[in-house]
C-alpha cells in the first residue's frame, strides 16, 4: 500500500455513546482505495456501531469522517449513499414484500433520472431509464447467480440467499465503498465459501473498496488486506492480518474468547 495516495476513507477520533453508554471511544483508522479491510472484535465491541457511523445511521458525538476527499463531522444516510457508500446489515434489512429483482432495482434508485410523471405515462426518459436500470440489475443477478429467484418475494427465500440478495442490492448502486456487517453469519461452510468468493470478486473485478465485519478468523485472514481490531469500543490493533494476529492484546482480548 503506497503511502502517498490519500486513503478513500479516514476516521479520526470517533466517539459515540448511547445515553452515556460508550459504544465507540476515540477510534481512528484509514481505509485505502481498493482494499478489503476487516473489522473484528468480540460481541459488543462496537463494530456495527462504527459501520453505522460511516454511513450516517448514527451520528457520533465526536470525531471526523473523511470520505473521498471530503471531510465531515458526521454523515447522513442519504449523503453517504450519494457519495457512493452502500452496505448490508447484520440483521438482514431487505424489503420483504418485494421480489428479488425489485429489491435489487431499489439499489439503483439514485441512478434513475426520469420524473414520476414520465414514469406514470411511460414517456420521455422513463422507458429507456427503466431498461438501463434493469440491465444493471440483471448483471448483478447474473454475477450473484440469482437468476432462478428473480421474481420470488425475498421473504420466501432461505437465509443464505437473502444475504446474497442484500449484497446484490448494495452492488446495484455500483458503490465506491461497500460496508458488509457479518455477511457470512449463520451460513454453512459451503455458503461461506461462496460468499467469500463473491466478496473477493467484487473487490478484484469492480475495484470496490470493502469494509467488512466478520467473526470467522480463518475467513478474515484469507480475505482481508488490512485488519482493525476493536475491544470495548477501543481500537487495539490495526495493520496487516499476520501482524495483527500476533499482537498480544489481540490474542488476549479477541482470540482468547472467540465465540464463533
Amino acid at each position: 500500500m503506497s503511502e502517498t495516495v490519500a486513503p478513500l476513507l479516514s476516521l479520526a477520533h470517533i466517539s459515540l455513546s448511547f445515553k452515556g453508554v460508550k459504544a465507540v471511544t476515540d477510534i481512528g483508522f484509514d481505509v485505502a482505495e481498493g482494499e478489503i479491510c476487516a473489522l473484528i472484535g468480540p460481541n459488543g465491541a462496537g463494530k456495527s456501531s462504527l459501520l453505522n457511523v460511516i454511513n450516517g445511521v448514527y451520528q457520533p458525538q465526536q470525531g471526523e469522517i473523511r470520505f473521498a476527499g471530503r471531510s465531515r463531522r458526521a454523515m447522513q444516510p442519504h449523503e453517504a449513499a450519494v457519495a457512493g457508500i452502500a452496505r448490508t446489515f447484520q440483521n438482514i434489512a431487505l424489503f420483504k414484500g418485494m421480489s428479488v429483482l425489485d429489491n435489487i432495482l431499489t439499489g439503483r434508485n439514485l441512478a434513475s433520472r426520469s420524473s414520476w410523471l414520465e414514469q406514470a405515462f411511460r414517456l420521455g426518459r422513463a422507458v429507456a431509464d427503466e431498461e438501463a436500470q434493469r440491465a444493471v440489475a440483471e448483471e448483478v443477478i447474473a454475477f450473484l447467480r440469482l437468476q432462478a429467484w428473480r421474481h420470488t418475494p425475498v421473504g420466501q427465500l432461505p437465509y443464505g440467499l437473502q444475504k446474497r440478495v442484500e449484497l446484490g442490492r448494495a452492488l446495484a448502486a455500483r458503490p465506491r465503498l461497500l460496508l458488509l456487517d457479518e455477511p457470512m453469519a449463520g451460513m454453512n461452510r459451503e455458503e461461506k465459501r461462496e460468499m467469500s468468493q463473491f466478496i473477493r470478486e467484487v473487490n478484484q473485478v469492480f475495484g470496490t473498496t470493502i469494509v467488512l465485519i466478520e467473526h470467522d478468523i480463518g475467513v478474515v485472514m484469507e480475505l482481508s488486506d488490512h485488519v482493525v481490531v476493536l475491544d470495548y469500543g477501543r481500537k487495539i490493533g490495526d495493520g496487516e492480518p499476520e501482524a495483527v494476529r500476533a499482537l498480544p492484546e489481540v490474542i488476549a482480548a479477541y482470540l482468547g474468547q472467540q465465540r464463533h
Partner: peptide, 23 residues
C-alpha cells in the same frame, strides 16, 4: 416504476430505504 419501488421500500423498511438513498 422507480417511484413505486421506492414506495414499497419505505413501506417494508424505511431505515434501509434511507440508507440506499431513497428520499
Amino acid at each position: 416504476s422507480s417511484l413505486g419501488r421506492n414506495w414499497m421500500a419505505v413501506r417494508d423498511m424505511d431505515t434501509a430505504a434511507a440508507v440506499i438513498g431513497i428520499p
